[in-house]
């Protein structure tokens, strides 16, 4: 399992994204996973949410100032700050990403954003 070709800042953003998804799940009501996590896995929801938020804050602090500034602009208003690009389409706004960006071999070595919606993008292999 090597992450050598993944930009470290992009790696942090992806981790933050996944933790935000987890936090959202644990914060959701009757239709979410929170009751299931309590029932089957004995999770202390308050403690888990606090732990996740602390981890997210720690990781946001590890972002470079420029990327952190963009993250802080996007994060309060969107569920997803990093969106996948699948078959050349940004799944944040469903607009095609220029081929030069979507098909670039080194696409995971730099942090990129969608020119249309401004989300950070993660091009799916």
């Amino acid at each position: 399992m090597s992450n050598t070709l993944l930009n470290p800042q992009l790696s942090i953003l992806l981790e933050i994204q996944d933790m935000r998804a987890q936090l959202r799940e644990l914060s959701s009501g009757e239709d979410g996973s929170a009751p299931m996590e309590e029932e089957h896995f004995n999770i202390d929801l308050d403690e888990a949410r606090l732990h996740l938020q602390e981890k997210i804050d720690e990781m946001v602090a590890e972002l470079s100032p420029q990327i952190r500034a963009r993250y802080n602009r996007i994060a309060p208003n969107r569920d997803r700050v990093v969106v996948p690009v699948i078959h050349g389409v940004c799944y944040g706004c469903f607009v095609s990403i220029p081929t030069a960006t979507a098909g670039d071999q080194g696409v995971h070595q730099v942090v990129r954003t969608c020119e249309n919606c401004g989300s950070f993008i993660y091009v799916k292999p």
């Binding site: 399992m1 090597s2 992450n3 070709l5 993944l6 790696s11 992806l14 981790e15 996944d18 933790m19 987890q22 996590e37 089957h40 896995f41 004995n42 999770i43 202390d44 403690e47 888990a48 732990h51 996740l52 981890k55 995971h108 292999p125």
Partner: peptide
């Protein structure tokens, strides 16, 4: 391999919140 690495970290973070071992020899 990149996806495997990211997924491993996410699963580890979930396990850190509490084990997904539900008992009777089973984990999810």
């Amino acid at each position: 391999s990149k996806s495997e690495g990211i997924l491993f970290k996410t699963l580890k973070r979930r396990e850190n919140l509490g084990s997904t071992g539900i008992g009777k020899g089973i984990a999810i």
